[in-house]
């Protein structure tokens, strides 16, 4: 029977069990790498480096995980912090040519698939809105959990989600239900 996150964390804490930690990485790598790929605007190599750093930090600081939140929420928080630190180092990630991206917000942009357009539209959003949308709407976190991950007030998360959704609706208007 596969062990749940709490059991695996307990094994890591008790025995420094690398096998248990590997199981945790296997269980969460897709979600963490997916989130970071979105945050880094599809820079896969950078996202994977950050994901590796995320898990390394998680291992080193696993004693600070008290089990109050879900393990995945705790991981997202570390991932987001890693991303923010990297973004501060490479300013271009945060302020990434916003003017160019704004100019691309034309709903008529020719993209073959809706998925592609949705990804593209998400990447056009400013970081606070993108992070909030990714965590709440794609990764299924509650507003409260997202506020903890992003370390911002609950009201700000709600505002960012609303604003982001409005922008997405505008950008994807051409794809909407007919």
């Amino acid at each position: 029977m596969p062990l749940n996150d709490a059991d695996l964390v307990a094994r890591v804490l008790l025995d420094d069990d690398h096998h248990a930690f590997a199981e945790l990485v296997r269980n969460h790598q897709s979600a963490v790498r997916g989130l970071l790929r979105q945050l880094t605007r599809s820079d896969f190599a950078l996202a994977d480096d950050l994901a590796q750093e995320t898990f390394l930090r998680a291992y080193k600081n696993i004693r600070s995980f008290r089990g109050e939140a879900k393990f995945s929420t705790w991981l997202y928080r570390i991932a987001y912090n890693c991303f923010r630190e990297e973004a501060r180092k490479r300013k271009e990630l945060v302020g990434i040519d916003e003017a160019r991206l704004e100019a691309q917000q034309d709903p008529q942009t020719v993209d073959p698939a809706l998925k592609h357009d949705l990804m593209h539209a998400l990447q056009l959003l400013p970081l606070p809105e993108r992070s909030a949308i990714l965590l709440c709407c794609q990764n299924g976190l509650s507003h409260d959990e997202a506020a903890r991950v992003l370390d911002i007030p609950l009201g700000t998360v709600k505002t960012n989600v609303l604003r982001g959704r409005e922008k997405l609706k505008k950008t994807l208007a051409a794809w909407g239900p007919n």
Binding site: D15, D16, D17, H18, F21, A22, V25, Q29, D48, A51
Partner: peptide
């Protein structure tokens, strides 16, 4: 990916 992460972990204390 998991193998790379595990490889980079510090040796068990």
């Amino acid at each position: 990916f998991t193998a790379r992460v595990v490889q980079s972990l510090p040796a068990p204390a």
